[in-house]
């Protein structure tokens, strides 16, 4: 058990649900541009810290919820978030041991990939690919990573 925290699926699913709600919160325009996609961050965190608790399923279902609630194309967020989940689980040992700052860089990369997948699907399906503002949340998301990681870390191993 040394170094490996207990995996508690309940905690993972509950925090993901709360993050989903905070993500789709109706906000004024400027705030909603910079508002980070908290669901992606939380799923990313749990996938690296507890790869077995949620698995890729949480990414898929979370993404599907985003699709339905934001009215985007069905399966779009699901695909992007499943991919992120997969990569996070695949490389969790690499990322887990890094200091928060480096983790935030990984988060930046992951969020960028996430948005790139959405962007590509938008393009393929001729939905209009939007303006540069859609990428803002990538940066703000990475910026709040230490906060999220600290908060969730406290939740699963209270010291």
């Amino acid at each position: 058990m040394l170094g490996a925290p207990r995996e508690s699926p309940l905690l993972v699913w509950m925090t993901a649900l709360i993050a989903l709600m905070l993500t789709i919160l109706p906000l004024p325009r400027i705030l909603s541009t910079v508002w980070p996609n908290l669901l992606v961050l939380v799923v990313l965190y749990w996938s690296t810290m507890m790869p077995r608790a949620g698995g890729i399923l949480i990414g898929f279902l979370g993404g599907l919820c985003l699709d339905v609630l934001t009215g985007s194309q069905l399966g779009q967020h699901a695909l992007a978030l499943s991919l992120l989940c997969y990569l996070a689980i695949r490389f969790h040992l690499l990322v887990r041991a890094k200091p928060l700052f480096e983790q935030a860089l990984f988060a930046l990369l992951a969020l960028g990939l996430y948005e790139a997948v959405l962007w590509a699907i938008d393009g393929f399906s001729a939905q209009g690919t939007g303006t540069w503002t859609r990428w803002v949340h990538v940066v703000t998301g990475a910026a709040v990573w230490p906060l999220i990681a600290g908060l969730l870390g406290r939740l699963h191993s209270p010291r």
Binding site: G59, L64, Q73, L74, G75, L79, L83, R90, I121
Partner: peptide, 25 residues
Amino acid sequence: ARDSAPGPRFFIFAVLSIVLMYFDQ
């Protein structure tokens, strides 16, 4: 052993997403 499992599972979910997208169109 456990960590090599996500590959196939990701594949299944990815196919599922793409099928959903196809039908949604």
